[in-house]
Design a protein around this nucleic acid. Sequence first.
RNA 1: UGUCCCAUGGUGUAAUGGUAACACUCCGGUUUUUGGUAUCGUCAUUCUAGGUUCGAGUCCUAGUGGGACAACCA
Length: 557
Amino acid sequence: MEEKEPLNFIEQIIEKDLETTHKKEDLCFRFPPEPNGYLHIGHASSICLNFGLGLRYNAPVNLRFDDTNPAKEEQEFVDAIKRDVSWLGFNWATECYASDYFQQLYDWAIMLIKDGKAYVDSQSSEAIAEQKGTPTQQGVDSPFRNRSVEENLDLFEKMKNGEAPEGAHVLRAKIDMKSTNMLMRDPVIYRTLHKSHHRTGTDWKIFPMYDWTHGESDYIEQVSHSFCTLEFLPHRELYDWFLDQIRDSSKLRPKQREFARRNLSHTVVSKRKLARLVEEGVVTGWDDPRMPTISGLRRRGYTPESIVNFANGIGVGKRDNLIDVSRLEFSVRDDLNKKANRVMAVLDPVKVIITNYPEDKTEWLDAENNQEDDSAGFRKVPFSRELYIEKEDFREEANKKFFRLKLGKEVRLKNAYIIQANDCVKDANGNVTEIHCTYDEDSLSGSGTEASMRKVKGTLHWVAIKEALEIEVRLYDRLFTVASPDTHKEKDFMEFVNPDSLEVITGYAEPSFKELHVEDKVQFQRLGYFTVDKDTTTEKMVFNKTVGLRDSWAKLE
RNA sequence: UGUCCCAUGGUGUAAUGGUAACACUCCGGUUUUUGGUAUCGUCAUUCUAGGUUCGAGUCCUAGUGGGACAACCA
């Protein structure tokens, strides 16, 4: 007997259907992006939900491009979406396009007209909007609502052939202008658009609207459960109405169910808003490491596993939510802790001189790559007389809570020797420029000597200056200064952009860095996780800081 | 002046009429050649008021609060 794990409400819906109306083989899901932008962390949740269900029930999951609007959609986005879904580690059963169903949708529309369920309206969009009423006020019928079937057919044919100018006519479903659900007030199902479509070119001059397309696409693909976000809940009535008009009762009837979109703190998760950040130059592009896009997170150094674990870990519900970004950071630390090799780099250097170490000597010491992974092995790091350590790791004097280097006291240099600070040199402004230390020759890490086993409270990372590599390091902070930048009543979210979200510095790294390639992930010992950016050249390596280590010392300070 | 959805620690999600739990965060202890990791622990939760019931976070009613709906967007 296995433990009964708790089910989320989506899984409960499926389990119940499995008991009553559906067979296991009936299950089929889909992820339906519109190819008009890049996928972001919110989509990742939806991807993990749908593809996760596919894995759980061993059911197919289609990747369906909802490409009904040629004005916005592009092949570039199709490619990017496929790349992102694959990168997350999911395989779709069939690559589908709503545009593949244009003919079927058209045939059904003709049927609707013949049944008296649809009519051509020849008013302006303003007039139609006017007659639609408001949420609290019912609509009124269009003067064209009762055109004859013949006239409707004729006009619709003209729309299709491009004989009517854009905007002259639309096809509307004839439902109920008095409905409390505004979507049921004779929704537009076709508009004329004389634009080239990324897949159908200029074949079609009429394009179906979302509501008319989505449910019927689900039906064509025999999707059993069509999961979407809460804002589509009022669309469900229409979804069902359309299905009722065209359904063959021997076939499976798709059902739409809704879950709450998952919001991430300190960022925005809306394609339109993300596009503004790109257009207004706040970030360098859709894959800027500060962006919550899949490609941005990837460039930042997030692993697919960390994103999938994040999405699965937060669950799914129906309430408005704002997930703290620290939850995302936790999941990438958790994953990288197991995977990333430890290396040493100094980002804010101060020089250390080991006064009792020979001038010309360089020792190549063994350093363990990852204590969390026995198979990770060892590498060599050079040690010599002049080193860099972090400025903040030295104080002339400090209380005993400061475990680092101070005058007269000892620290361990990671993978190397125990040193003691004896003296320091300062510039005219009183800044420390050199620290003079002596080392304990018998204290080499791993040498097994008594001196090497001594317990010293502090351990510092360091690099030998002579062998050090200069690297560019890009440090990131939250893109917005407030948790929820886009829910403010009066202020535009752009007013909350953090002006200090990027800091570019030069750091110094141990020679083993030469072995790293773009997208490789490492832990800069004691600092955080970093990944090699694609801007890296043979001249200069560029690193992105993915996330810092937890830092209980920083909190103490 | 409407219809619909939602309400559990700081955050997110469980508990399916029967002891309110898990994760993150926060705080503290232990271990540690990363102030990391691991590990142990502390604090903290059912919006309000009625009702049904032996028993209500769960069911019902009302209230309060939050959200959605008036694109030829998806």
